[in-house]
Amino acid sequence: MRAIRVATLTGPDDVEIAEVDRPSPGSGEVLIEVAYAGVTFPELLQTRGMYQTKHELPFVLGSEAAGIVVEAGAGSRFSSGDRVAAIPGKGSFAEFMVAADEQTVPVPDEVSLAHAAGMPMNVLTADFALRLRAQAQAGQSILVHGAAGGLGSATVQMALAMGLEVIGVVSTEDKAETVRDLGATHVVMAEGFKDAAKELYPNGVDYVFDPVGGDRFTDSTRVLAPFGRLLVLGFSAGEIPSIKVNRLLLKNISVDGVAWGAAARERPDYIAEQWDAVADYVAAGKLNPAIHATHPLDEAAKAIGELDSRSVRGKVLLELKGE
């Protein structure tokens, strides 16, 4: 079968299209014919050896995908013909992939496989951040950095589905339009976001969702209301910020790490539990990702490179079998 493989840690331009053996499912696993694969920020980092999870070279790239089960291993809860999405961690940029049952979720008929491929990592990360880590409640407010990106846009949709007021932070007017289309309560520009947010919410917001880091971090603490929480998800700006902890003390605010992947590895039941928790939102179309671009498999380098350019508005996909 055809697959995208990482053989050298020299960046997305050097990923290769290779013929590799089609995998076989073991006990409690499924073989999935991949319809679409989602392109995520970890893939970009993995091509450079910068992601916390390391794989022995060469390896088939790809963290998530959606498709049809073509073979179920002994004891699997899935059957041939099931529409599913899965988060195997690697191997999804291929015509077929194997995923464990606990990494696999059913896709309702109302949801396209293209949209399903763009959901798992971003939707479950957003749910983990808002429902499980922040324990956010309807009527509260959240400022979302990188609101037009794959993770940011999923978080905007999740927060709105949960009844929160959302301020989306973006860097361009095109991205602002994308976030407005998602239904965000307010949209502000990254340049000067602190003053814009304080004008909208003079007493501050309850949460800041930050997958960006860098020089936005300090101003993010300044827009929090007393007892507010800054949710740290990553550092796409490339710089890991630091903070003088007296800022936390003076306003009774906190900075919370949100590492969904680490939690899911420790709790294999997390994925199914979370998918059940958001199932109504998914079926109702409240979490359908905006699709920025869809590329064929042989354009994987270009697709991953789009994330590097920080120009993405929504989700980037690779199309394999399609629908």
Score class of each variant (00 low, 15 high):
A74P: 11
K198V: 10
S220M: 06
G150C: 10
V30L: 08
K175Q: 13
A35Y: 02
D174F: 06
I243Y: 03
G322V: 09
G228P: 10
T172D: 07
D109L: 04
H115K: 11
F96A: 04
G89N: 11
Q46L: 13
D109K: 12
V258I: 14
V187N: 03
A176Q: 04
A136W: 13
L130E: 02
R229T: 13
R83P: 13
S141E: 02
V20C: 05
A154L: 03
D13W: 01
K90N: 12
E110L: 10
R48G: 08
I240M: 14
L249G: 05
L307P: 04
K90Q: 14
Q103F: 01
L248T: 11
D308Y: 03
G214K: 04
V20F: 06
D109S: 13
G26A: 09
R5G: 00
D21P: 13
V278P: 03
G75M: 06
L230E: 10
G28M: 11
D219C: 01
R83S: 07
L317P: 04
V39K: 07
F41M: 05
L307I: 09
K302T: 15
A279R: 14
T8E: 15
G285H: 09
V98F: 06
A176L: 05
I167T: 15
L143T: 13
G257I: 07
T218K: 13
V105A: 12
V245H: 05
V69G: 04
G28L: 10
P226A: 04
A37D: 07
V30A: 05
G152N: 04
Y51F: 14
Y270T: 12
A147N: 10
D21E: 15
A263I: 02
Y201F: 15
A86K: 04
A117G: 07
V282Q: 03
T185N: 07
I4G: 03
H295P: 09
E177C: 02
G28A: 09
G146Q: 10
V212R: 04
I271G: 01
R313M: 15
V278C: 05
M1C: 02
L61S: 12
D256W: 10
I87Y: 10
I32H: 05
A303H: 09
V107Q: 03
L45C: 07
V255N: 02
G28S: 06
I167P: 03
R216Q: 14
E266W: 00
A301T: 02
P226I: 01
E29V: 08
G118C: 08
A86H: 05
T221L: 15
I142E: 07
V282R: 10
G213W: 09
A283C: 02
G89A: 08
E306Q: 15
P88H: 09
L182G: 08
V123G: 06
E95M: 06
G146Y: 08
